[in-house]
Amino acid sequence: MKKIGLLLLVVVFTISCKNEPKKDVQKEKFPEALGKVFDKHGGINVWRKANTLSFNIGEESHTVDLHSRKTVVHSPKYSLGYNGKDVWMVRQDSTAFKRDPKFYYNLYFYFYAMPFVLADDGISYEDASPLVFEGKEYPGIKISYASNVGTSPDDNYYIYFNPETYQMEWLRYSVTFFSKKTSEKFNVIRYNDWKTVDGLLLPKSITWYQKDEKGLPTKPRGTATEFTLAIVKEAKLQDAFFEKPSQE
């Protein structure tokens, strides 16, 4: 089934290879340090030229239009997605998926597409205190969103990077999707396993960490989440790809 899905994706890429006008990325303004992080990971210009990102987590395949953020997640037991207007879901049975599809459909895309999703419109940047782990300090940048951006504009992200290489190392983030209120409770993810995919340095795996009383990471909270079968393409998928499939 995975091979068939990958073949279908390649076919769709081939028949719909159209490029849309791109932003003049030279005019975009980021903190100098964040610009260096983008450069370390392949460059914001390379990211902006791409139209489609695809990756797997276990049996789930995730495919995203990088400009409209239309999304499809397929697995043997369920499918869900966002067609640009509505979030939809198809289950093989009622027990197949218990999460909220509106929360889940783009959850792993944001984790996987770090650090480049931090170049989205409507973002504000601030310097943040360094994160300390095993005696080493990682400089930080706080990312917050305008009130009209996304379904959870009160979420805050903190990216931390290696001060010598500018490679991303850590992410702290809050979740406000359910409460709709600003939260001081943060999760921590370590990014220390990377792979070059079509010119971009993207995570091969990520690991959630436990925290001490100061909110600093201590040890892994569980096994790493692994990403496989990654593809980044300038080809644009047809809109029909992201529509809810027939259940006949």
Rank of each mutant, 00 (worst) to 15 (best):
W47C: 05
R221C: 11
L9Y: 01
L53T: 14
G135A: 02
K2F: 15
V232M: 03
Y160H: 02
E184G: 12
A119W: 06
I189K: 15
V90E: 08
R69A: 08
Y191M: 08
P115M: 06
K40P: 06
F13C: 07
T165R: 05
V232I: 02
Y158Q: 03
E60N: 11
G135Q: 10
N148L: 10
Y173R: 09
K3T: 09
F242E: 07
T196I: 05
R190S: 03
E226I: 10
D155R: 00
P31A: 11
K23M: 14
E32T: 12
D212E: 06
A113H: 12
T207N: 03
A224I: 02
Y82T: 01
Y166W: 10
L216W: 11
S144H: 04
V232D: 01
G35S: 15
Q26L: 00
Y158F: 08
F178H: 13
H62S: 04
T63P: 12
F55L: 06
G5S: 01
K70Y: 11
Y145N: 07
V10C: 14
E184Y: 11
K180P: 13
K102N: 14
A128G: 08
R69N: 07
Y78E: 02
F30P: 01
E226T: 12
D193E: 07
I123C: 11
F116T: 01
D154K: 07
P101I: 08
M114R: 08
H74D: 15
K70V: 12
P217C: 00
E243C: 04
K40L: 04
I123M: 15
S147M: 09
Y145W: 06
S16A: 11
S205I: 00
Q247N: 14
L200H: 00
P203T: 06
L34K: 01
Y82P: 05
S75T: 02
L7A: 15
T52L: 14
L34H: 05
D39L: 13
F111G: 13
P153R: 00
A146D: 11
F116H: 08
H74Y: 15
P76T: 01
V11R: 08
I44C: 07
K2Y: 14
T63K: 06
V46Q: 02
I15Y: 10
T151R: 05
G222C: 05
K219A: 10
D155I: 05
Y157I: 10
V175C: 03
E213F: 02
P76G: 09
D154L: 06
P245E: 11
I4N: 12
A240E: 13
S94M: 09
G81Y: 03
E234Y: 11
Y110T: 13
L53A: 15
T228W: 04
L107T: 10
K49C: 13
H41Y: 00
F30N: 04
